[in-house]
Design a protein around this nucleic acid. Structure first.
Lengths: 117, 117
DNA sequence: AGAGCATATACCCGCACAGGAATACGTCAA
DNA sequence: TTGACGTATTCCTGTGCGGGTATATGCTCT
Protein backbone atom coordinates (compact mmCIF):
# COMPACT_ATOMS: atom_id res chain seq x y z
CA UNK A 1 0.00 0.00 0.00
CA UNK A 2 2.26 2.76 -1.23
CA UNK A 3 -0.46 5.34 -1.13
CA UNK A 4 0.46 5.57 2.53
CA UNK A 5 3.95 6.69 1.60
CA UNK A 6 2.51 9.53 -0.41
CA UNK A 7 0.42 10.71 2.50
CA UNK A 8 3.37 10.36 4.84
CA UNK A 9 5.30 12.67 2.56
CA UNK A 10 2.46 15.17 2.51
CA UNK A 11 1.92 15.38 6.24
CA UNK A 12 4.68 17.87 7.02
CA UNK A 13 4.32 21.59 6.23
CA UNK A 14 7.84 22.02 4.92
CA UNK A 15 7.49 19.05 2.59
CA UNK A 16 4.16 20.36 1.36
CA UNK A 17 5.77 23.66 0.48
CA UNK A 18 8.65 21.91 -1.25
CA UNK A 19 6.35 19.78 -3.37
CA UNK A 20 4.18 22.75 -4.21
CA UNK A 21 7.23 24.59 -5.50
CA UNK A 22 8.51 21.59 -7.43
CA UNK A 23 5.16 21.41 -9.15
CA UNK A 24 6.17 24.70 -10.76
CA UNK A 25 9.77 24.03 -11.67
CA UNK A 26 12.90 22.08 -10.70
CA UNK A 27 14.89 23.75 -7.98
CA UNK A 28 18.11 23.31 -6.08
CA UNK A 29 18.59 23.28 -2.34
CA UNK A 30 19.73 26.86 -2.04
CA UNK A 31 16.56 28.02 -3.77
CA UNK A 32 14.49 26.27 -1.16
CA UNK A 33 16.56 27.81 1.59
CA UNK A 34 15.88 31.24 0.22
CA UNK A 35 12.22 30.80 -0.67
CA UNK A 36 11.17 28.92 2.44
CA UNK A 37 13.58 30.77 4.72
CA UNK A 38 14.56 27.59 6.51
CA UNK A 39 18.02 26.28 7.47
CA UNK A 40 19.94 24.12 5.03
CA UNK A 41 19.83 21.00 7.20
CA UNK A 42 16.11 21.09 7.43
CA UNK A 43 15.61 21.45 3.70
CA UNK A 44 18.18 18.84 2.91
CA UNK A 45 16.69 16.28 5.25
CA UNK A 46 13.18 16.74 4.00
CA UNK A 47 14.43 16.37 0.45
CA UNK A 48 16.21 13.17 1.43
CA UNK A 49 12.97 11.92 2.96
CA UNK A 50 11.09 12.67 -0.24
CA UNK A 51 13.82 11.17 -2.39
CA UNK A 52 13.89 7.89 -0.45
CA UNK A 53 10.17 7.52 -1.11
CA UNK A 54 10.37 8.36 -4.79
CA UNK A 55 8.42 11.58 -4.52
CA UNK A 56 11.26 13.62 -6.00
CA UNK A 57 14.36 12.90 -8.01
CA UNK A 58 17.75 14.56 -7.69
CA UNK A 59 20.42 15.23 -10.24
CA UNK A 60 23.78 16.78 -9.65
CA UNK A 61 24.86 19.76 -11.71
CA UNK A 62 28.35 20.80 -10.65
CA UNK A 63 28.04 22.06 -7.12
CA UNK A 64 24.27 21.96 -7.11
CA UNK A 65 21.70 19.28 -6.65
CA UNK A 66 18.68 19.89 -8.82
CA UNK A 67 15.50 18.45 -7.40
CA UNK A 68 12.42 17.81 -9.46
CA UNK A 69 9.29 15.74 -9.56
CA UNK A 70 9.82 12.40 -11.27
CA UNK A 71 8.94 12.40 -14.96
CA UNK A 72 7.19 9.07 -14.67
CA UNK A 73 4.58 9.38 -11.94
CA UNK A 74 2.07 6.74 -11.05
CA UNK A 75 -1.60 7.63 -10.88
CA UNK A 76 -1.71 8.08 -7.12
CA UNK A 77 1.08 10.61 -7.08
CA UNK A 78 -0.36 12.53 -9.99
CA UNK A 79 -3.79 12.67 -8.40
CA UNK A 80 -2.50 13.80 -5.06
CA UNK A 81 -0.22 16.45 -6.47
CA UNK A 82 -3.13 17.84 -8.38
CA UNK A 83 -5.30 17.73 -5.28
CA UNK A 84 -2.58 19.56 -3.38
CA UNK A 85 -2.45 22.29 -5.99
CA UNK A 86 -6.20 22.73 -5.77
CA UNK A 87 -6.28 22.84 -1.99
CA UNK A 88 -3.47 25.31 -1.72
CA UNK A 89 -4.59 28.04 -4.11
CA UNK A 90 -5.91 30.40 -1.48
CA UNK A 91 -3.39 29.76 1.27
CA UNK A 92 -1.23 32.80 2.09
CA UNK A 93 1.87 30.75 2.89
CA UNK A 94 1.82 29.00 -0.45
CA UNK A 95 0.99 32.16 -2.34
CA UNK A 96 3.91 33.85 -0.67
CA UNK A 97 6.14 30.96 -1.70
CA UNK A 98 5.16 31.50 -5.31
CA UNK A 99 5.99 35.18 -5.08
CA UNK A 100 9.35 34.34 -3.59
CA UNK A 101 9.90 31.83 -6.35
CA UNK A 102 9.28 34.53 -8.92
CA UNK A 103 11.75 36.79 -7.18
CA UNK A 104 14.45 34.12 -7.01
CA UNK A 105 13.71 33.20 -10.56
CA UNK A 106 14.20 36.81 -11.64
CA UNK A 107 17.67 36.98 -10.12
CA UNK A 108 18.60 34.01 -12.23
CA UNK A 109 21.95 33.22 -10.70
CA UNK A 110 20.78 29.67 -10.95
CA UNK A 111 22.25 26.49 -12.38
CA UNK A 112 20.94 25.81 -15.87
CA UNK A 113 18.88 22.76 -14.90
CA UNK A 114 16.82 24.54 -12.29
CA UNK A 115 14.22 27.19 -12.80
CA UNK A 116 13.25 26.02 -16.23
CA UNK A 117 9.96 27.44 -17.30
CA UNK B 1 -2.54 25.18 7.79
CA UNK B 2 -5.16 22.56 8.49
CA UNK B 3 -4.51 20.71 5.26
CA UNK B 4 -1.69 19.13 7.22
CA UNK B 5 -4.17 17.65 9.66
CA UNK B 6 -5.98 15.97 6.82
CA UNK B 7 -2.79 14.41 5.54
CA UNK B 8 -1.85 13.35 9.05
CA UNK B 9 -5.15 11.53 9.28
CA UNK B 10 -4.56 9.85 5.93
CA UNK B 11 -1.08 8.59 6.63
CA UNK B 12 -2.05 5.45 8.54
CA UNK B 13 -3.38 2.35 6.76
CA UNK B 14 -6.08 1.62 9.31
CA UNK B 15 -7.37 5.16 9.17
CA UNK B 16 -7.37 5.08 5.38
CA UNK B 17 -9.51 1.96 5.44
CA UNK B 18 -11.86 3.50 8.00
CA UNK B 19 -12.35 6.65 5.95
CA UNK B 20 -12.81 4.67 2.79
CA UNK B 21 -15.60 2.71 4.45
CA UNK B 22 -17.21 5.81 5.92
CA UNK B 23 -17.33 7.28 2.44
CA UNK B 24 -19.87 4.53 1.73
CA UNK B 25 -22.03 4.64 4.84
CA UNK B 26 -22.04 5.46 8.56
CA UNK B 27 -20.79 2.58 10.70
CA UNK B 28 -20.34 1.68 14.32
CA UNK B 29 -17.21 0.41 15.99
CA UNK B 30 -18.16 -3.24 15.94
CA UNK B 31 -18.63 -3.05 12.18
CA UNK B 32 -15.10 -1.82 11.79
CA UNK B 33 -13.84 -4.58 14.02
CA UNK B 34 -15.49 -7.15 11.83
CA UNK B 35 -14.69 -5.65 8.45
CA UNK B 36 -11.11 -4.68 9.17
CA UNK B 37 -10.45 -7.64 11.45
CA UNK B 38 -8.61 -5.51 13.95
CA UNK B 39 -8.89 -5.36 17.75
CA UNK B 40 -11.38 -3.01 19.35
CA UNK B 41 -8.74 -0.82 21.01
CA UNK B 42 -7.03 -0.17 17.75
CA UNK B 43 -10.22 0.82 15.95
CA UNK B 44 -11.43 2.92 18.83
CA UNK B 45 -8.21 4.84 19.14
CA UNK B 46 -7.97 5.59 15.45
CA UNK B 47 -11.57 6.80 15.50
CA UNK B 48 -10.74 9.05 18.44
CA UNK B 49 -7.80 10.41 16.49
CA UNK B 50 -10.02 11.17 13.50
CA UNK B 51 -12.73 12.66 15.68
CA UNK B 52 -10.34 15.03 17.47
CA UNK B 53 -9.33 16.38 14.08
CA UNK B 54 -12.83 16.77 12.74
CA UNK B 55 -12.48 14.13 10.06
CA UNK B 56 -15.39 12.10 11.41
CA UNK B 57 -18.30 12.74 13.74
CA UNK B 58 -19.77 10.35 16.30
CA UNK B 59 -23.28 9.99 17.60
CA UNK B 60 -24.48 7.61 20.25
CA UNK B 61 -27.37 5.31 19.54
CA UNK B 62 -28.09 3.24 22.64
CA UNK B 63 -25.11 1.02 23.12
CA UNK B 64 -23.51 1.91 19.84
CA UNK B 65 -21.47 4.81 18.60
CA UNK B 66 -22.27 5.60 15.01
CA UNK B 67 -19.41 7.17 13.13
CA UNK B 68 -19.83 9.08 9.93
CA UNK B 69 -18.19 11.71 7.79
CA UNK B 70 -19.22 15.24 8.79
CA UNK B 71 -22.13 16.61 6.79
CA UNK B 72 -20.43 19.96 6.41
CA UNK B 73 -17.02 19.36 4.89
CA UNK B 74 -14.64 22.05 3.80
CA UNK B 75 -13.20 21.99 0.32
CA UNK B 76 -9.89 20.38 1.31
CA UNK B 77 -11.54 17.43 2.99
CA UNK B 78 -13.95 16.89 0.12
CA UNK B 79 -11.17 17.02 -2.43
CA UNK B 80 -8.97 14.61 -0.55
CA UNK B 81 -11.72 12.12 0.15
CA UNK B 82 -12.52 12.10 -3.52
CA UNK B 83 -8.86 11.66 -4.37
CA UNK B 84 -8.68 8.78 -1.93
CA UNK B 85 -11.62 7.07 -3.55
CA UNK B 86 -9.99 7.41 -6.95
CA UNK B 87 -6.62 6.11 -5.79
CA UNK B 88 -8.05 3.14 -4.03
CA UNK B 89 -10.27 1.63 -6.69
CA UNK B 90 -7.89 -1.09 -7.76
CA UNK B 91 -6.34 -1.93 -4.39
CA UNK B 92 -7.14 -5.47 -3.18
CA UNK B 93 -7.27 -4.49 0.49
CA UNK B 94 -9.85 -1.81 -0.10
CA UNK B 95 -11.84 -3.94 -2.48
CA UNK B 96 -11.93 -6.66 0.11
CA UNK B 97 -13.14 -4.15 2.68
CA UNK B 98 -16.05 -3.27 0.43
CA UNK B 99 -16.97 -6.93 0.03
CA UNK B 100 -16.86 -7.38 3.79
CA UNK B 101 -18.99 -4.29 4.18
CA UNK B 102 -21.58 -5.82 1.90
CA UNK B 103 -21.52 -8.98 3.93
CA UNK B 104 -21.93 -7.16 7.24
CA UNK B 105 -24.59 -5.02 5.70
CA UNK B 106 -26.51 -8.11 4.61
CA UNK B 107 -26.62 -9.51 8.13
CA UNK B 108 -28.24 -6.28 9.20
CA UNK B 109 -28.09 -6.79 12.95
CA UNK B 110 -27.06 -3.19 13.00
CA UNK B 111 -28.28 -0.11 14.83
CA UNK B 112 -30.71 1.91 12.73
CA UNK B 113 -28.38 4.88 12.21
CA UNK B 114 -25.60 2.85 10.70
CA UNK B 115 -25.52 1.12 7.36
CA UNK B 116 -27.95 3.51 5.74
CA UNK B 117 -27.91 3.19 2.00
C1' DA C 1 47.18 20.70 -2.44
C1' DG C 2 44.20 23.99 -0.54
C1' DA C 3 40.21 26.96 -0.03
C1' DG C 4 35.45 27.80 -0.76
C1' DC C 5 30.98 26.64 -1.92
C1' DA C 6 26.70 23.56 -2.00
C1' DT C 7 24.88 19.73 -0.01
C1' DA C 8 24.60 15.50 2.85
C1' DT C 9 25.12 12.83 6.96
C1' DA C 10 25.84 11.55 12.02
C1' DC C 11 24.57 12.28 16.38
C1' DC C 12 21.64 14.07 19.78
C1' DC C 13 17.15 15.31 22.01
C1' DG C 14 12.21 15.56 22.57
C1' DC C 15 7.83 14.33 21.21
C1' DA C 16 3.99 12.16 19.06
C1' DC C 17 2.04 8.18 17.78
C1' DA C 18 1.03 2.93 16.95
C1' DG C 19 -0.02 -1.00 19.42
C1' DG C 20 -1.34 -4.02 23.21
C1' DA C 21 -3.21 -5.15 28.10
C1' DA C 22 -6.08 -3.92 31.52
C1' DT C 23 -9.65 -1.29 33.14
C1' DA C 24 -13.30 2.23 33.16
C1' DC C 25 -17.52 4.11 31.35
C1' DG C 26 -22.34 4.35 29.48
C1' DT C 27 -26.51 2.02 28.30
C1' DC C 28 -29.90 -1.42 28.58
C1' DA C 29 -32.48 -5.46 30.33
C1' DA C 30 -33.83 -8.44 33.93
C1' DT D 1 -28.75 -3.69 41.43
C1' DT D 2 -26.42 -6.61 38.79
C1' DG D 3 -24.79 -8.27 34.63
C1' DA D 4 -23.96 -7.98 29.80
C1' DC D 5 -22.71 -5.50 25.99
C1' DG D 6 -20.38 -1.88 23.16
C1' DT D 7 -17.03 1.48 23.46
C1' DA D 8 -13.48 4.63 25.54
C1' DT D 9 -9.52 5.53 28.29
C1' DT D 10 -5.31 4.76 30.89
C1' DC D 11 -0.82 3.01 31.22
C1' DC D 12 3.00 1.08 29.12
C1' DT D 13 6.61 0.22 25.40
C1' DG D 14 8.92 0.80 21.15
C1' DT D 15 9.66 3.45 17.11
C1' DG D 16 9.94 7.07 13.84
C1' DC D 17 10.25 11.65 12.94
C1' DG D 18 11.31 16.89 13.39
C1' DG D 19 14.80 19.90 14.54
C1' DG D 20 19.41 21.47 15.76
C1' DT D 21 24.75 21.27 15.96
C1' DA D 22 28.65 19.68 14.16
C1' DT D 23 31.03 17.48 10.68
C1' DA D 24 31.67 15.08 6.32
C1' DT D 25 31.37 14.80 1.31
C1' DG D 26 31.60 16.34 -3.47
C1' DC D 27 32.75 19.68 -6.82
C1' DT D 28 35.36 23.71 -8.65
C1' DC D 29 38.75 27.07 -9.01
C1' DT D 30 43.32 28.72 -7.90
Amino acid sequence: MELIQIYQCLCDPTRLRILHLLAQTPLCVCHFQEILDEPQVKISKHLAYLRERGMVVAEREQNWMIYSLPKKRDAELTANLKCLQDCVQADPVFKRDLRMLAKVSAKSDAPAGALVR
